[in-house]
Design a protein around this nucleic acid. Structure first.
Length: 413
DNA sequence: CCTCCACCGGAAATCGCGGGTA
DNA sequence: TACCCGCGATTTCCGGTGGAGG
């Protein structure tokens, strides 16, 4: 450096250090948990049957990062012993709802690209047979990491895998399962027989407190940004948001990265707290947009119904009173309106996304228990998200278009 | 303290679709 | 082609819930 010409100073030295998949040399704030984890993995090095391990804790508290970290070391260390053949397969179960899906993905993980199987169509038992065959062919010690296992709706594979050897399906391979879950109740909902085998070793990862988050953010920011880019308080603010919401490192890191990106877009050389707030809004927007795009057509209709009611000052409104409006919209586009129970599901989904909110009310003998829904986000933001999302022909034209005229809403009542 | 309202939400059944085997 | 399979979305069924009214 130091020639006559220099590249413009970017704020990032290495932006990737803020990414979720970045692996720092040391993991901050998880010493105790990793120590226990390491102990639980010890049998692998000893050439013994590995423990099944169950990790739980909220998102972004280091479960996956810790697993990657330890398993990388484990693989290195195992390589020093000739009598150990260690294979590690990691599978993220997000988007995979059944044991069947898990099994097909696992089979494919063991097969090369020219030989992949379809993820649908086969009888369940056939898929399992293929899986046992692959596992046995691989042999040695096999660790299977199932990240976000709580997404699986049935126990079957969790029951089958640990027992495959005992059931005579395997002869060459020693299988160890590492299950990772965000959902505490998942563990309790497992059938007892699965619980006892899968949860031989349980490690709980607590949320990070603000101090730990600050340490983590510092560690990453030191690598990610050039010196002097961050102004005082930025890291603390990101950490504070993260700690307040969920003690979630991922979220804090995302926020910091978004802030950096904004700074870069705006050609700002210094990152300030104000920028953090802007970034937070931006992320929120994105979340809503994503949430809305994942809804069904009827989900959109329910949302339209609520929005129009909101504009007429009718909110908060109980589901019973949303229904006629929704029904109208559905008829307008020639769709059969859903049954009330299902409409409630959509309402629930919308509040889960933070787009609307529900308050439970109870008028006892007179009115019973019910919920009142209201819109939680800026209407225009929702509308623009709907605008970008709507794919159904005619829906947006017939409803949003007229809605935008902002005149005679009586037409829909 | 017991009733009762009216929606809430879990569970099981059903439907239609995409995909596979023989 | 005939038939099998899994799966998401939906419908059907129904027990639960909590506070005002008695």
């Amino acid at each position: 450096m130091g020639g006559m010409f220099e590249r413009d100073l970017d704020i990032y030295r290495n932006r990737d250090a803020l990414r979720e998949d970045y692996q720092p040399d040391t993991l901050v704030g998880r010493d105790e948990e990793l120590e226990r984890y390491k102990t639980a993995l010890q049998p692998v090095i000893n050439g013994e049957q590995p423990n099944n391990i169950f990790l739980y804790g909220k998102t972004g508290v280091g479960k996956t990062a810790g697993t990657r970290f330890l398993l990388d070391h484990l693989i290195d260390d195992a390589a020093q012993y000739d009598d150990i053949k260690l294979t590690v397969k990691m599978l993220n179960c997000d988007g995979l709802s059944s044991s069947y899906q898990i099994a097909t993905r696992l089979v494919n993980k063991f097969r090369d690209e020219s030989n992949q199987i379809s993820t649908t169509g086969y009888p369940r038992s056939t898929v399992y047979d293929m899986l046992w065959e692959e596992l046995d062919k691989c042999g040695g010690t096999i660790l299977i990491v199932l990240d976000e296992v709580d997404h699986i709706n049935d126990d079957s594979i969790l029951y089958q895998l640990p027992r495959a050897r005992a059931n005579g399906n395997l002869s060459n391979a020693k299988i160890g399962i590492i299950g990772i879950s965000n959902d505490f109740s998942f563990r309790d909902n497992l059938s007892p027989k699965v619980k006892s085998s899968l949860c031989e070793e349980e490690i709980q990862f607590p949320a990070y407190d603000a101090q730990e988050l600050i340490q983590i953010l510092r560690q990453r920011a030191d690598v990610a940004f050039y010196d002097g880019v961050l102004t005082d308080g930025v890291i603390e603010l990101c950490a504070a948001y993260g700690a307040k919401d969920a003690g979630d490192a991922r979220q804090s890191l995302d926020l910091l990265m978004k802030t950096g990106d904004l700074a870069r877009d705006r050609d700002t050389k210094a990152i300030t707290e104000d920028l953090v707030r802007d970034a937070r809004n931006e992320l929120e927007r994105g979340r809503i947009r994503e949430g809305i795009s994942g809804l069904t057509q009827h989900g959109h209709l329910v949302l339209y119904a609520l929005i129009t009611l909101d504009r007429e000052g009718e909110t908060p409104v109980r589901s019973r009173d949303i229904r006629p409006r929704y029904t109208n919209f559905a008829n307008q586009i020639g769709a059969d309106p859903l049954v009330p129970r299902r409409m409630r599901d959509h309402l629930g989904e919308l509040s889960m996304l933070g787009i609307i909110s529900a308050v439970e009310r109870n008028e006892g003998r007179r009115g019973g228990t019910y919920r009142e829904y209201s819109v939680d986000m800026d209407i225009n933001m929702i509308l623009s998200a709907l605008d970008e999302t709507i794919t159904e022909v005619g829906v947006h034209e017939s409803i949003a278009g007229i809605f935008a005229e902002d005149t005679t809403l009586e037409r829909y009542t």
